[in-house]
Design a binder for these strands. Structure first.
Lengths: 205, 205
DNA sequence: ACCTGAACACCGTTCAAGT
DNA sequence: ACCTGAACACCGTTCAAGT
């Protein structure tokens, strides 16, 4: 195989190229209507080519969503402090990392939770989403064991924590967390209330 | 004007009819891709007719979203108990009413928060959304005054409460609140943690 | 085995023309 | 003043044909 002056007929690894291109456009083009034809265009292939690698548009969406959940999980694990000295010291950086992931990748984050059709079709997506849930679950479980958080059904606490952070992330993406309306530092304030709800109650607080 | 055996050329109140038809389809057709042409079809007019009443598709979306926020606000006010004897007694029914609104009108609820373009164009939508926020704000403000909830910046608490319920609602819509994965009665459990975070700490809890 | 081009049934939007 | 029909530039998806 010598260097080809023109695009070769066969693309080599079109599947990966399509995914990469889509992620790229999701990152750069804000408020982009995900369109298969444009992905193909930017990848330099005909609009029919993707169908050799994905059964339909939804399948690509699901693939992207799974990648998104994996990356989110990694971001959370990376943000986990080595030796947190308090519950707050552990919850805050993880929460901030979560919200940052969402606001840095708004289109991808949206997509992760709105590939409804995909959710109906396969359980793979749910699995990835619940892997994120388990990061929270694990954190709170260790907190309970260490005696820093309340003894309550830990899955309920994890659900509350996930929902709160998920909600904050989406409100932020939607531009509804404007300080003038909702108070200054809304993110930190909301996390404070979450910590209040998880921490062992201190009568003097 | 006598009774007309055939559809009159002029529709009477097409604007309202379009909105009504759209709300209807949003309610009945699950996972429906909102399409202007189909709304027109069901309303019994040509696909171009709606353009006399709405500048574009987004304008109709925004209109529907505003109606959604108004209805949500009313549902919350209706759910507010007459004379709550405790914080929990007031927060729980309102929270349940909120989530119920979302799960009963999943398509509309989604739409309310994803008419991005509309959000960019006008502030009207944000106003309606923040009217909902103010219901929460008011509830917590009275709670602080009555001494049933912690003294913290009330806007931060309201943000936390809204985000948590918003998050729960979306997770429920997305089918991610399955008891097998997330624990039984996830909704009640999450609300319990929210109440923990808002209530004046009791050392014995 | 992998990609292209034409084709089909859809959209949103516009605009001259009808009532 | 309000609605229609044809038209344009898009989509997703399929399929025979090319390499």
């Amino acid at each position: 195989m010598q260097a080809t002056p023109h695009r070769p007929y066969h693309h080599g690894d079109l599947r990966r190229a399509i995914i990469e291109t889509a992620l790229d456009m999701l990152r750069t083009e804000k408020d982009w209507q995900f369109t298969l034809r444009e992905v193909a265009r930017r990848a330099g292939v005909s609009h029919a080519a993707p169908y050799k690698h994905f059964p339909d548009r939804t399948a690509l969406l699901v693939e992207l969503a799974m990648i998104g959940f994996d990356r989110l999980r990694e971001a959370l694990l990376d943000a986990k402090p080595e030796a947190p000295r308090s519950l707050l010291e552990e919850i805050t950086p993880i929460s901030l990392a979560y919200v940052a992931f969402g606001t840095d990748n708004p289109a991808l984050y949206r997509l992760m939770f709105s590939a409804e059709e995909g959710r109906a079709v396969g359980m793979h997506l749910d699995q990835r989403a619940l892997a994120v849930f388990e990061v929270v679950l694990d954190m709170l479980g260790r907190g309970q064991a260490a005696g820093t958080i309340r003894k309550r059904p830990v899955r309920g606490q994890a659900t509350a924590a996930w929902a709160l952070i998920h909600g904050i992330t989406l409100l932020a993406i939607d531009g509804l967390l404007v300080p003038e309306k909702v108070g200054s530092a809304p993110l930190e304030a909301a996390i404070a209330t979450l910590v209040d709800g998880l921490a062992i109650p201190q009568p003097n607080t």
